[in-house]
Design a protein around this nucleic acid. Structure first.
Lengths: 133, 133, 133, 133
DNA sequence: GTGGTCTAGACCACC
DNA sequence: GTGGTCTAGACCACG
């Protein structure tokens, strides 16, 4: 289910975070459900347990998962809501960024081109991962 | 030349910063040129000197203007270059933001709609100010 | 914990910035930890809140601390990394400065003397503050 | 007399500025003396006249040389004094930089090593150029 | 309660 | 005259 690209320039723990977020968004992992234990994940992916701990504790801080000592990590009941809120936040950041660039004289074509490229690139990656389930 | 909208929800010092950036970009104020002294500006716009100081010192830290104590503030010789570099940085931030939103499942139409709105809104404001010169 | 010398010629807000940097470096304040609120600090040190705001907002722009409106200021998770990077930057600045002085004919002894003096002076101050914890 | 390295990463106009400063410091060009005209220099070094103009006008702004329209550029009478003052300024910058690095925990050996390297590297370059006269 | 903006005014150092 | 620091206090938005 989870997989990491050790050669990627984005840190492994970021990859794990992104994947769990995607799994929650597309329903692969439901709210309240338990996620793989650090030890299991560590063996399965041949990754240092500390790396997984880092990913999990950051997701914990974001309010997406919760550690239950002695049991494991569980997706929070309001995880989808948290993700939706952070999307709204990102939309506001987008507005501000576009305003600044417009003010700085960046041509509109340059912006829309970059937006399309970045979107399609991410989408392509996403579809690939979703079919890999 | 400079003007502020006291009723706006964007802070006065941000308005001043944005205006000076625009003036440098469209050549109204050349590199190396002196800009209005804090006291002058303060009287002209009926604004507290501290507010202008805040705008100026932030622009100073950005490397756009330089304070010469006892003389005044002057536009840096490489101000245009600094502005260009910060534009490039913003494009990278845009890429990352779009990726995250694509990953979070924000529909493409929502993004392009927001981008267009934000761009046109800023552009409209900009044209208005430029014709006020 | 924090303390300022009102008679010093270095501005109070600079003293506060330097102290927080040191506290982060020597682990007195951990990454992610909350730092004293503006109002608390203002009362404790009998300093105007604006002065502390100035120190905090500059540290914020440096990426060392982060303001969470309504909650308080928190040390960034990557604060130590930011400090390390700025150290590297300073080393590069040092190289350039030495080159210019060598080119200008400043004798080597003059330089090493100044370097030693400045270093030892700062070190002495630092040790004193660390033992004051 | 003058020579530039087109392949160097330091801009050509910076190279020219540095060379003229050195020539003034070691007496190769005396105060009050005329320096090569932009056109001559441009042909001799196969460099775009604008590049030389940029170097000359920055030196002019520094108070080292002075343009006499219709005659050419001349070294200012107080050029050596100006250079000495800027050396003093650099020493102060050095003090501050060293203080910041000491505070940041940069080990003393690291600093002295970098200082020595940078000094000797520049000195070596300088001797080479001086014997090329 | 938190941070953040703005005003009014005093005071300093420098030129 | 210039920039820069600091104080005192009002006011807002957010939680």
């Amino acid at each position: 289910m989870f997989q990491v690209d050790a050669m990627s320039r984005t840190p492994v723990y970021e990859q794990l975070k992104a994947q769990l977020e995607r799994f929650i968004l597309n329903g692969t992992i439901a709210e309240g459900e338990q996620i793989p234990s650090i030890r299991n994940m560590s063996i399965e992916l041949s990754i240092n347990p500390n790396t997984i701990l880092k990913a999990y504790s950051e997701l914990d801080k974001m309010g997406l998962i919760q550690a239950v000592p002695g049991k494991g990590y569980f997706v929070c009941e309001n995880a989808l809501e948290v993700l939706a809120q952070s999307s709204l936040l990102k939309l506001d950041q987008l507005d501000e960024l576009i305003s600044e660039m417009a003010m700085a004289g960046v041509p509109r074509e340059e912006i829309t081109r970059r937006v399309d490229n970045a979107y399609l690139k991410e989408r392509k990656k996403g579809r690939k991962e979703d079919t890999n389930d």
